[in-house]
Write a protein that binds this DNA or RNA. Sequence first.
DNA 1: TCCTAATTAGGAATTATTACTATTTAAGAT
DNA 2: ATCTTAAATAGTAATAATTCCTAATTAGGA
Lengths: 138, 138
Amino acid sequence: MPINYFIEQLQAKGVKITPQRQEIIKVFLESQDLHLSAEEVHRRITVKFPSMSLDTVYRNLSMLQKLGILTELNFGDRKSLFEINNSQHHHHLICTKCGGSQEIEFCPLDFLDKQHIKNFKVQKHSFEIFGICANCMQ
Amino acid sequence: MPINYFIEQLQAKGVKITPQRQEIIKVFLESQDLHLSAEEVHRRITVKFPSMSLDTVYRNLSMLQKLGILTELNFGDRKSLFEINNSQHHHHLICTKCGGSQEIEFCPLDFLDKQHIKNFKVQKHSFEIFGICANCMQ
DNA sequence: TCCTAATTAGGAATTATTACTATTTAAGAT
DNA sequence: ATCTTAAATAGTAATAATTCCTAATTAGGA
């Protein structure tokens, strides 16, 4: 997805298109890493724009997540990671040794009997598998 | 499960049976709430034993989790919750409005095609569904 | 009863995130 | 093109959860 695709979403929601916001989206689009922490996003931007405030990063990550442009991930280490929604819905295998992760396309909701969630309005869900990856296995 | 069941597990692992440890286990066994934070465990114990250190709570929760006596839960609010393993494996529906949770017996691993996780040694997994519970719905 | 490694209390330090406030700015109106 | 203003930002302080540190205590074996 080109950056304009996301900029248009912002315009449609009536939020201002600031240079800071554009930089944050660019970082995700240019990143090889799929998952970035607020700190890491900030670090990458301040290389070129040293005045970017960490608060601005947090504020915008949160806003972009609410708009559905980013997904927030919690791998249980009490720091949030974010990934941009430019591929299909998926979940993750996370290596507890090296910290790396891979995507799996399996989604539990496809197998969940609706009996289990009646009288409950589902908003979102999380599913992660933790273990040792092939690399770390030997 | 009586408390002795857990004490014996500790003895079998060769850790010392301190009063502090026994209190922590008691708190879980006596609690109607299924999920307790470190802070909450500490709060309940200091009513009777004001000198219990918060550090001791953290250290022991972590130890009890590694021994398989407790399960650590992360509902994405960057604070860990713990529950004692005295019922069968389950997952949770979590209400984003009131914070309450209910158990569901469905487990994704029962439906996961082993193709998805080949070359990966599974250690643990998380699965939570977030939404609005029946009470908060009206 | 003695010994010692394990454990603890108390407080300081760390990490991630949120709050606050004065200043700046995007973008619609004139 | 300029003006206006609500939204957004920078910089810093505050908060929350957790971990680290160290001297003192203690469980449990000898």
